[in-house]
Amino acid sequence: MHPAFSVILLTTLIGAGQGLFLALYTDQVYSVFRVIRALPPTASGLYAMGSLIALVLLAAGLLASFFHLGRPERAWRAASQWRTSWLSREVLLLPAFMALVAAYGGLHHLGWDPLLARLGDSIPVHLSLLVGAAGTLAAFALFICTGMIYASLRFLQEWASPLTVLNFILLGTASGFTLAAGLAAWRWPALTGFYGLWAIALTLAAAVLRTASLVRNHRLRHRSSPQTAIGIRHPQIVQKAQGAMGGAFNTREFFHGRSDAWVRLVRHLFLLLGFVLPVAVMAAGLLLPAPRLLVLAFALQYLGLVAERWYFFAEARHPQNLYYQAA
């Protein structure tokens, strides 16, 4: 497939935005349920600032997605087919999630967070906790929609796997937690360790599953062949003409147009930038401690994920290419 930068930016930006929101809310939930220390008094500021950054990332992703459309002025129509289309579901969920993130950040920024109930004797349930829970559901639903857009195309066998959805979830949350660690290191150093350790754990988990996906796709046997494509049972079929003297939509949209060496290079690059270096830099940043390294870790990981997404598209071999073997 041809990797379109609009879609690469959309999926990486909203993934980081969703992950950042999940990081903020995880921290709040852990504090409320006293899994970790009680909330530091300044945490609300972090949640508000983090929500704002998440919103900016989500909005930038949404903006990038418009550049993918031939007719962006009709984009509103894309909300109508949510019964059958994962793309339509994503189109509905993204603004809904953005609204929840805005509400969550707004509650923390204004400091208006009424106590709604108490669980047992001591656990307070504030409004922000409920809004955050809804946001968490929306974030995961959005990850699933984004992943299923690709995983539901059954004949794109590189994508048609549960690993695709899991990778979207893990890569997005890993980058979001890394960003949260960088953000905490900037003004809320007490929370750096929590986010940093989560970010390392999630990045390692993402590395394992992304590698599993690479291994799976390396071993993949394609079900379609030139024989099934034209229905002629002979081992030797060579295409002589493509029905077009020059280029066509079919020779552009489904080919990345780069050499195998380039594709291999991008794979090494994303494994290095997306997983190895961020973990190393974050570990160094937490141990030294050198908080600026955590910001660097996010920058590296984001670049790595852009390369990962490019590779994700380039790796997928569309069966229609059997009809365009000379492209």
């Binding site: 030139p226 034209i230 002629i232 002979h234 030797q236 079929i237 060579v238 295409q239 002589k240 003409a241 493509q242 029905g243 077009a244 020059g246 066509a248 939509f249 009809y323």
Partner: peptide, 12 residues
Amino acid sequence: GTFFNRVQTFEV
């Protein structure tokens, strides 16, 4: 260009 129908040629 955009075509609805194309004739391709294969050598078997």
